[in-house]
Design a protein around this nucleic acid. Structure first.
Lengths: 326, 326
DNA sequence: ATAAATAAGTTAAACGTTTAACCATAAGGG
DNA sequence: CCCTTATGGTTAAACGTTTAACTTATTTAT
């Protein structure tokens, strides 16, 4: 049962039915009730495609993620949820797995949403620029990109790493290794260069063989751990990892080989994912206000959709000391 | 730039442009190239709402979750992802937070998807029946409900709990406590009754004050732990929890009060979430093939969409012994 | 040579809403 | 009593696709 059929049954025009459905005050209570009664008994199957077509908008934004693995974005989603509800929008989550067949791709290329928040480095700049060109506003959390319909909210990766190294140095720890993330990722690059600059700040020399590169997963941490264990006589006193997953892989593998943490080696992660609080020893890490980040992302996106003035933003990061570091 | 404008620029009819866009072989390569060239230079902004309206379908299914917290559904999503891609559908995730304003609600009540998979007990039967009545096929993972457009895939909660208790009994552990989940949840009810029946099978008496009820979160586990610690002289030898979160809360709190696990108390969870492998001691739990569950859910849903024969399914559960139980 | 089939288009209706513009009728103001 | 305003409704266009049905020109088969 659609509006047209409904109108027929009620003996009124489709316009009137539409006004009833949308709670407009253009219709008398008698006709309103008549229509409502028919809806009650016959049911009404709203067709969103028709409305979207007419309105050229659907008040839905999409959060594009690489995958739903890793509880990394859990808190982020909280902020997104709050902001979306408060601002009268709905959000859905789509993943970028599957390339051009992925949901993230479909949502954006087919303009199925009023806007998008991107945290999926695999989506190419070109694709995002194309979406922006088709008038879909985009907030990027994972890179810098310039377009009138795009804004980015980035992490101030430097401050957190600097704090971590300051702390280590204050404990007289200066032999510091680093595990970087996937090299094409913007944040991985930023964090690596933050490591270099913070080490330089303390005039610490960097042992080149102690700068590893990983894939942001536990396996990478494990691999590095095994490689360190191969050279037991020449081990760093601390390892900073570009994310918590790798730090956990590192920590657990070292523990399994009877290395004492933090006594022999301090391990520091990045992101402060939920699990890092629960492992033993709990993981020292670099944190940032994820919920706030989520909130700001939605807030900025909706302002952008509404053609308001929106600036790029930076989110602070800070070192959280737990038990995996001295 | 839309089809109509494109057609004008190219000097052909809109039908021809549509045929080009859809790769139909009704058009000569010269006109095809002419159209393609204009698209190349001017860009084309596909309007999905128009297509959806015409086609009355969009090849999108939605996964409705209570929230994105807890890595509980991570593996499930893997199966969903694989099946969806393989079967030519896309999936999005929507949460049910926010009641009638939630995205899950909007997707279903406004028929914005071709089908839905539900794992969100907060969504009411009545609402789901209404969606089904509007011809949206639904797969339920969290309850039993009967309607031509609805199928359910449920866990065989009994077998896993039975195995766990068998194992405990074989270790001469018979004083067993239980923490139930949110009482309105179907699985919580099933698991509780499985506990009763399995205990009965071994002719074990159930100490009523040892059957707790929780909210499926860590706090509930902690609360129960503290209550047990208050009665140290009369403690159970094992606690089975209706999910891992509560088991973790319980375990960690007991540990913090110097109870030895599993020597003094065995702790057993349910769900086998990722984190349960990483905590110390690793959590014994009741597991089930989540990836398979996800795959089956999508497979069934799409068959249902295609009006094929689909039956309800049951998924096996089984006890996984780790270090938190004897 | 003619009929039949194919190729390459076009025309126009349809999908189900929303909403500006229009039209009566009744009520209120002077 | 006339003019204005409010109330409650209708009409019809528009949103941008898809696709069955039709047309015309060309090729193939007999």
């Amino acid at each position: 049962m659609n509006i047209k059929e409904l109108a027929q049954k009620a003996g009124v025009s489709v316009a009137t039915v539409s006004y009833v459905l949308n709670g407009k005050n253009k219709v008398s209570s008698t006709t309103r009730n008549k229509v409502l009664a028919i809806i009650e008994s016959e049911g009404y199957e709203f067709n969103s495609a028709a409305r979207d077509l007419k309105k050229q908008s659907n008040k839905i934004i999409v959060i594009c993620l690489e995958s739903l693995h890793g509880s990394f974005f859990n808190e982020l989603i909280d902020g997104i949820e709050q902001a979306a509800i408060k601002l009268g929008y709905n959000f859905i989550v789509a993943t970028s797995f599957g390339g051009t067949k992925s949901s993230a791709y479909k949502m954006l290329s087919e303009r199925r949403v009023d806007g998008a928040i991107i945290l999926a480095p695999i989506l190419e700049n070109e694709f995002l620029l194309a979406a922006a060109a088709k008038n879909t506003p985009v907030i990027l959390l994972d890179r810098e990109l310039n377009h009138p319909n795009i804004r980015n909210i980035l992490l101030d990766n430097i401050s957190g790493i600097e704090q971590a190294i300051d702390e280590l140095v204050s404990k007289k720890i200066t032999n510091i290794a680093y595990i970087g993330g996937i090299e094409s990722h913007f944040d991985a690059q930023q964090r690596l260069s933050a490591f270099y600059s913070s080490m330089a700040k303390h005039q610490l020399t960097i042992n080149k063989s102690w700068v590893f590169s990983g894939e942001f997963d536990q396996a990478s941490g494990k691999r590095v751990a095994l490689s360190l264990l191969n050279n037991r006589d020449k081990c760093p006193e601390a390892v900073i990892c570009a994310n918590d997953e790798m730090a956990i892989g590192l920590e657990q593998t070292l523990l399994a080989h009877n290395i004492k943490i933090p006594e022999q080696i301090s391990v520091i992660g990045f992101d402060d994912i939920v699990i890092s609080r629960y492992i033993t020893p709990s993981l020292s890490t670099i944190s940032y206000p994820k919920q706030e980040l989520g909130y700001l992302a939605v807030d900025s996106l909706i302002k952008l959709i509404q053609k308001k003035e929106v600036t790029n933003l930076k989110i602070r990061t800070s070192f959280i000391k737990r038990n995996s570091s001295k």
